[in-house]
C-alpha cells in the first residue's frame, strides 16, 4: 500500500492531538513546552505533505512557510525556557498548578 496524502495527514493530525493532550495535561512547564513543540512539528509535517502532493503553481511556498515556522519555534523555545528558569529562580517551582499569583 503506497502512502498517499491521507496517510501523511493522518500522522500529522495524530501528532498534533498528542501534542495538544501533552500541553494541556502536564504539570511541569517544560512538559507543556514539549507539547507545543510537538504541535509545531505536526503542522510542519502537514504543510510539507500538502506541498509535495497537491497541484499548485508554486509548490515551494509550503517549504518557505515551514522555514518561518522553524524560526519562530526556535525563538519561542529560547524565550519559554528562559521564562521557566526565571520563574524557577523566583518561585522555586515550575509547576503550572502552583503558579497562580494572578488569581484573586
Amino acid at each position: 500500500m503506497t502512502p498517499g496524502l491521507e496517510h501523511f495527514l493522518t500522522v500529522g493530525a495524530l501528532l498534533f492531538c498528542l501534542g495538544l493532550a501533552i500541553s494541556l495535561s502536564k504539570r511541569n512547564a517544560i512538559g507543556v513546552l514539549m507539547g507545543v513543540e510537538l504541535m509545531l512539528n505536526a503542522v510542519n509535517l502537514t504543510l510539507i505533505a500538502f506541498s509535495r502532493f497537491t497541484v499548485s503553481p508554486n509548490p515551494i511556498a509550503g517549504h518557505t512557510f515551514v522555514v518561518f515556522i522553524l524560526t519562530v519555534a526556535a525563538a519561542e523555545a529560547a524565550v519559554a525556557l528562559a521564562l521557566a528558569v526565571a520563574v524557577y529562580r523566583n518561585r522555586e517551582t515550575v509547576d503550572v498548578d502552583r503558579l497562580n499569583l494572578l488569581r484573586s
Binding site: 495524530l14 494541556l24 495535561s25 502536564k26 504539570r27 512538559g31 517551582t93 503550572v96
Partner: peptide, 25 residues
C-alpha cells in the same frame, strides 16, 4: 522538579484532544 505527572485538569484536556483527533481524521 523532574516529575512529568498530570494536573487535575488532565482528563478534560485529553478528552478535547481525542475529540479534535476524531474531527481531523
Amino acid at each position: 522538579s523532574r516529575d512529568n505527572s498530570e494536573t487535575r485538569w488532565a482528563a478534560p484536556g485529553i478528552l478535547l484532544a481525542v475529540c479534535l483527533a476524531a474531527i481531523f481524521l
